[in-house]
């Protein structure tokens, strides 16, 4: 995309300085989109800043243009519209884990939010930031894939809805254009019984970047699985949805499934790497075990 040259509009209140050029803190989405359109990839978009300030820890002074979304209160809401849950991009992890709407309908997402970083990070970090950072280890990403979430990307030209599994294109890369902002996360609700499991594997409980995550969401009609959402983090260049395994499970009863065989399918469907958080072999072996554990957990929840 062509970078548009910054041009200052008189109506806009900005301050320029030696240590930075401009810091924008718009109070409307429209204004934010206009600034984003004007500055494109020259501007650093700040949500909760819990990733941004770490990534730029020694070079904050190099950032010349800031677009701070903190005053966009419209993006801090969680609401139901037409049988879909709409989560504003500036909703924090703390909000997600406390929200009755999320706990009731998206328990796996609430559990993942509770496992992010520490209380200090959960109180500032946002769902939109987690998505836009697009780390393969982002804790909310596997749950979002499992629930079939879509992302609303807005620009001054209009808006488009992108499915979560099409959004992530590589480690810390995504399909967002430089004039776009993520404004909403949309997740379909269902009248079916939904049960799920969230498993995060890491070296310690708190403040840990995941070695592997698994989110399983199953929808039941009676005992029959009518929809399956299975996704993992930290096992491939992007968070991945395991559609092959989902297909095997649909129209089956949980009790008819061979958990261990499904676990081996999971192992065969992922492509992990060696890194400082674990080896490829370790992740593959753990993938089998967590799949079995997740299905057993759902079995317990369904039968109770």
């Amino acid at each position: 995309m062509m970078r548009k040259s910054p041009m200052k509009q008189e109506s806009r209140q900005t301050i320029s300085g030696v240590d930075f050029k401009e810091y924008f803190q718009p109070e409307s989405i429209q204004k934010a989109l206009e600034i984003r359109a004007e500055y494109g990839d020259q501007i650093e978009v700040a949500a909760g800043s819990t990733d941004l300030l770490v990534a730029n820890y020694e070079k904050l002074h190099e950032i010349k243009y800031w677009l701070d979304l903190v005053k966009l209160d419209q993006l801090k809401k969680i609401e139901v519209i037409d049988n879909e849950l709409h989560i504003g991009a500036m909703v924090t992890h703390l909000q997600l884990m406390k929200s009755d709407l999320i706990k009731k309908n998206l328990a796996v997402l609430a559990a993942a939010a509770e496992d992010v970083g520490s209380p200090q990070i959960r109180s500032r970090g946002t769902i939109g930031g987690n998505i836009c950072t697009s780390s393969p280890a982002g804790d909310l990403l596997a749950p979002l894939l499992s629930y079939g979430a879509s992302f609303k990307l807005q620009s001054t030209e209009g808006e488009r809805i992108v499915k979560a599994e099409e959004f992530f294109t590589g480690p810390k890369r995504n399909s967002m254009e430089t004039d776009e902002l993520l404004t909403e996360i949309i997740i379909p609700l269902t009248d079916n019984k939904r049960e799920g499991s969230w498993i995060k594997v890491g070296r310690r409980k708190a403040l840990v970047i995941s070695t592997l995550t698994l989110a399983v969401v199953l929808e039941f009609e009676g005992e029959k699985i009518v929809k399956a959402g299975i996704a993992m983090g930290s096992v491939a260049p992007t968070p991945v949805r395991l559609k092959g395994i989902e297909a095997v499970m649909v129209d089956q009863k949980l009790t008819d499934l061979d958990y261990k065989a499904l676990g081996r399918e999971v192992k065969a469907s992922i492509n992990p790497i060696d890194d400082l958080r674990g080896t490829k072999e370790y992740r593959e072996d753990v993938a089998v075990d967590v799949m079995v554990r997740a299905l057993k957990e759902i079995e317990r929840k369904v039968s109770s």
Partner: peptide, 12 residues
């Protein structure tokens, strides 16, 4: 709320 003051800009 508890916040890491190293991870937030004062402007925010």
């Amino acid at each position: 709320q508890a916040v890491n003051s190293c991870m937030v800009l004062t402007a925010q």
